[in-house]
Design a protein around this nucleic acid. Structure first.
Lengths: 339, 339
DNA sequence: AATTAGCACTCTATTATCTAGAGTGCTAAT
DNA sequence: ATTAGCACTCTAGATAATAGAGTGCTAATT
């Protein structure tokens, strides 16, 4: 791999990323001022193909990068720090907005990433079910409605209005909240769920119907077990590689399947790199073998708690996407510091 | 329009809804036991075409319902109360789950409707910005974090954790909340926003930085100005009329455009019918001229506050969709009664 | 008078065939 | 080592041919 080969490979991939058309030697020679003829480029391209960086859709077409070619591009060739000041300030701004429930926050993040990159984005939320309870408060909203406010070490995760048939006084409410907080402090929501659902684990006589209500509430809480938010799935329709409806369905079907994306992104957690790129068949999931996935992790208290991810055609604008995803995940880590 | 014509029209539309293929006289005669020959059916079909209920894609193809044909089908021919017990219990169940923020609730509703019908669903949320404030509570979450809990006559709409630099005592907090509640009771969130953002309208000296924080919060609140949640947009990909990516983009592009759907559905508000069907070119929006939209309104305190809507190809399973949308909107009205 | 069988006609979707053009690899000249 | 030249390959797109489904009309039948 001499410098000229690298140069040609880099330019070819850039051109292909921009045009989506197989790149021929003549085009390359004419369009870019390489100082060598198309014949020479042809020879180099033949070498690059032999090395496995390029492939031909068919004998008389131009060349297209192989998975390995993209890999080399991502690791060695692509421009770094490809991000505008506008983007940086947009992201910083977004995370200065006041806090809300985590689910919503994650949702907005995914939207922003998708909008900025032009590809679908998946964001994995922190594992709320494993957060430790710090406090439970109970407020009276209306005569027959209580509001439960559950704080954890990951912030306020949940609040719910619950209709309670029993008539509890203000004092009783306070006592109830205190009791809850004491009894459940430090356990995870996951455990809380089990405890409340298990009739043996609790004093069944006091606040009977309240317990039952809470039980129902908890049982319905599995919404949260899906930690992944998908945003902007339709943006892939604009790319010519997704002209084929079948392909679109295969990919988007996978992305929409609950849990599937979470599973996929787990395989990106092992790396120590802050941003990881998964190209084509490097993915364990066949449905997305002609896609690439770029994933960054974010942290709370220096523990990885979630991921910010982008999916698109292998012909992806890697430099920009990597930079964006990295920026967002960093800012997200910062924004979650209050947790 | 004698009975036989109606029968033929009804069967033809049912068949076309199921098959997506133009229906010919021979097919009709063979597949359904009408007791008349294909020639007779041909004559009837020619009449129905002349009446404007059917049209031919080209001379030697079968017939396809026209907008007017679908309209007649929806108004007169289609089976009523087309809904399974399973569906009914699913919906009732869903609305028994405990309450959460309205935005989330609406989101879940849209998802359910899309899943049940197999078409994209749009749900218009109640106009939260116009709800009247009933109470504001302020809690301390952590030493430097306050939680604002805003109740309105449409329920708990919002809660936000806000970092407050000032060190307020418990008493001060209570006083603050009381002051807020008194001062702002009965005004809309819309007005609240204006008031807080206007530095002249308030005593600038007390809680200065708190006010500023709240101002920032309010300024960012325009998220809520988009009242529409879209769910399941990808489901249209499965229908053969959306084999064409261009068309998909045109329709989904419209659905994703903020405000566009809200605008469209406004035109369905005038009717006194609980469910309204908009067929093809009956829609004011050209982008969805080969779609149909089924919309039901829901109420709080017998005021219409939002809509539940489904969009799909004109060849839509109207009976089922109408029944579903009606059921969901009724249950939604019931569930929101606590407001 | 309504229905039906028969038939010529129309139109599309599919398949087969042809062609231009872009790109290649190889060879010989620079 | 590079490049010009050239024969060769393969696809995308255009054109032509064909089968088949469906129609409308007419004349026969009930």
């Amino acid at each position: 791999m001499d410098a000229r080969k690298k140069r040609i490979l880099g330019i070819l991939i850039d051109d292909y990323i921009a045009s989506a058309e197989p790149v021929g030697s003549r085009t390359l020679a004419k369009k870019y001022d390489l100082g060598i003829s198309s014949a020479t480029i042809r020879n180099e391209m033949a070498d690059l193909e032999e090395l496995g960086f390029l492939e031909q859709p068919h004998t008389s077409a131009g060349r297209v990068p192989s998975d390995r070619g993209y890999r080399y591009y991502v690791d060695e060739l692509m421009p770094k720090r490809f991000i505008t000041n506008d983007a940086v300030s947009r992201v910083k701004m977004a995370f200065q907005a006041p806090m809300r429930e985590i689910a919503w926050f994650i949702h907005q993040t995914a939207r922003m990433v998708s909008e900025m990159t032009g590809y679908p984005s998946m964001v994995v939320a922190p594992p709320v079910l494993e957060a430790r309870l710090s406090e439970i408060r109970v407020l009276r909203l209306q005569s027959d409605t209580l509001l439960f406010l559950v704080s954890t070490d990951a912030g306020v995760v949940e609040n719910r209005a619950v209709s309670v048939p029993e008539d509890l006084s203000v004092d009783q409410l306070g006592a109830l909240a205190g009791e809850f907080s004491r009894e459940f402090h430090g356990i995870s929501i996951h455990e809380l769920k089990d405890r409340i659902l298990d009739p043996l684990a609790r004093d069944a006589e006091r606040y009977r119907s309240l317990w039952e209500t809470l039980g129902g509430w908890m049982a319905a809480w599995n919404v949260y077990e899906n930690r992944v938010t998908l945003a902007g799935p339709l943006s892939i329709l604009q790319y010519p590689e997704f002209r084929d409806i079948e392909k679109v369905q295969r990919v988007l079907g996978f992305l929409e399947r609950e849990g599937a994306v979470e599973e996929l992104l787990k395989s990106a957690l092992s790396s120590t790199e802050s941003v990881q790129v998964m190209i084509g068949q490097e993915s364990p999931v066949e449905a997305i073998w002609d896609c690439s996935v770029v994933t960054a992790t974010y942290q709370v208290k220096s523990h990885v708690v979630g991921q910010v991810s982008v999916i698109g055609p292998k012909r992806m604008h890697y430099a920009e996407v990597v930079a964006t995803v990295e920026l967002v995940s960093e800012e997200l880590s910062r924004a979650l510091k209050w947790a």
